[in-house]
Amino acid sequence: MPHCIIEHSSSLKGEELLSPVFQGVLGSALFTADGSDIKVRALPYSVYQTGNTGADFVHVTVRILAGRTEVEKQKLSAAVLAAIDSLKLANCSVTIEIVDIDRQSYSKSVS
């Protein structure tokens, strides 16, 4: 179920960020063991400002259905952060955000 949106500076290759984020979410053990419900996509930004420097950035928003505990959300955030940190990106700010999706208003269709 999780929808993982990776926003990143365009100097980084989004393709190289997809697998670590996927593996981090999978490694959290909060979702199906085969990972079939994990969706990951990347959005590069060529226009951005990171403080007073031109540092690269990666921001991952993981959207999950409401109902997880704060401990589970912290575990998920830490797992994704560790997976990205394993890439050893130089001069790069990495942030992770876990966002609840309202169950009552969420709709889904699979064809």
Score class of each variant (00 low, 15 high):
H3F: 00
H3D: 09
H3E: 05
H3C: 02
C4I: 02
I6C: 03
E7H: 09
E7D: 12
H8R: 02
S9I: 01
S9P: 00
L12P: 04
E15S: 14
E16Q: 11
L18Q: 03
L18E: 03
S19T: 13
P20D: 03
P20R: 01
Q23E: 13
G24P: 04
V25C: 04
L26A: 03
A29L: 04
L30H: 06
F31N: 07
T32V: 06
D34M: 03
S36R: 10
S36P: 01
S36A: 12
S36I: 04
D37P: 00
I38Y: 07
I38V: 06
K39N: 06
V40Q: 06
R41N: 04
L43F: 13
P44D: 01
Y45G: 01
Y48F: 15
N52K: 10
T53D: 14
G54R: 11
A55R: 12
D56R: 13
D56S: 15
F57D: 05
T61A: 11
T61K: 09
V62M: 13
V62P: 06
R63M: 10
I64R: 09
I64Y: 04
L65D: 02
A66C: 10
R68D: 09
T69I: 08
E70A: 14
V71M: 04
E72V: 09
K73R: 15
K73C: 15
Q74T: 11
Q74E: 15
K75N: 14
L76Y: 12
L76V: 13
S77D: 10
A79T: 09
V80K: 11
A82K: 14
A82W: 01
A82F: 01
A83V: 10
A83R: 10
I84L: 15
D85Q: 15
D85G: 06
S86M: 07
L87T: 07
L87W: 09
L87I: 08
K88Y: 05
N91Q: 14
N91G: 05
N91A: 14
N91T: 11
C92R: 04
S93F: 05
T95P: 00
T95N: 13
I96D: 12
I96M: 10
D100F: 06
R103D: 08
S105W: 04
Y106V: 02
S107T: 13
S107M: 10
K108W: 10
S109H: 12
V110C: 07
V110E: 10
S111G: 14
